[in-house]
């Protein structure tokens, strides 16, 4: 029996008085691609940020690859992890953001080599070699020395994917990776993500691209107001949704 890559049980998250996640329970298996759909404010992005501990959960259990996120269990007590331990766990999870968040003062190549050199202590030459391969893989072999401002949004997002892959993550989180892109540029980013899915990467993708979810996802989860409304195969959730809320959302997005 294999351990789930991500296991969430009744995860709750509050910002002040506002409860954003009201008990999320779901499971992602290794190699699975899960798409999270839902209206804005439904808690999808927050849930994603909880998985690599950019946000702390208030209650419930959340584990990645069999280990609790942010805590260690000793007996029946939880101990907070030290910052360096949290950082080490984050290094194994790649994250791609809506607004790319590339480091603007570094070239594409330096963006990709930065974390391997600083965090994994990989030798500079080896890191650059690997970065060139990764940038070629996302179709940017000719942009190695370009700064983020000199690239289109689609190119920047592909660099961001290469940057996350350079840490050789076991899980990739995508937070609306195409929402800030011109419609013409969405395809090139989705193309890279499809290839990644075919290569067997475990992925959780928050997206509004229903076509992508239908084609690539193993599981589609529809969230609204901090709860999972329904989940299942793309055919089930997208073609024959059981809940009225899912139906009305899909009718607006499609």
């Amino acid at each position: 029996m294999s351990v789930a890559m991500v296991n969430a049980e009744a995860v709750r998250k509050r910002f002040g008085r506002l409860e954003v996640l009201k008990g999320i329970t779901l499971e992602v298996q290794p190699g699975e691609v899960m798409c999270l759909l839902g209206p804005s404010g439904s808690g999808k992005s927050t849930f994603l940020r909880c998985i690599n501990h950019l946000e702390k959960i208030n209650s419930g259990r959340l584990s990645v690859d069999g280990e609790l996120v942010g805590y260690r269990q000793v007996g029946d007590r939880l101990h907070e992890l030290r910052e360096s331990e949290i950082a080490r766990k984050r290094a194994e999870i790649g994250m791609v953001f809506q607004h790319f968040n590339l480091f603007p003062n570094m070239t594409a190549l330096d963006n990709v080599t930065c974390a391997p050199i600083r965090v994994k202590k990989v030798a500079r030459e080896g890191a650059r070699e690997r970065a060139r391969e990764l940038l070629a893989r996302v179709g940017l072999a000719d942009k190695l020395e370009a700064y983020p401002v000199q690239m289109s949004g689609g190119q920047q997002q592909r660099v961001a994917i290469a940057r996350a892959l350079a840490m050789e993550p076991k899980l990739m989180l995508f937070d609306e990776p195409t929402s800030a892109l011109d419609p013409e540029l969405v395809g090139e980013v989705l193309g890279v993500m499809k290839q990644l899915a075919r290569d067997g990467m475990t992925m959780i993708v928050v997206t509004h691209e229903i076509g992508f979810a239908r084609e690539v996802a193993d599981t589609v989860v529809f969230m609204d107001e901090g709860v999972v409304v329904e989940s299942g195969s793309p055919a089930d959730v997208l073609t024959t949704p059981r809940h009225e809320r899912t139906r009305s959302f899909l009718s607006k997005v499609l």
Partner: peptide
């Protein structure tokens, strides 16, 4: 931008790094 710290931390950098 706060996203810069998010990105750095998601890559496994500590707060000091």
């Amino acid at each position: 931008d706060e996203g810069q710290a998010d990105a750095a931390q998601s890559l496994g950098m500590t707060r000091v790094q």
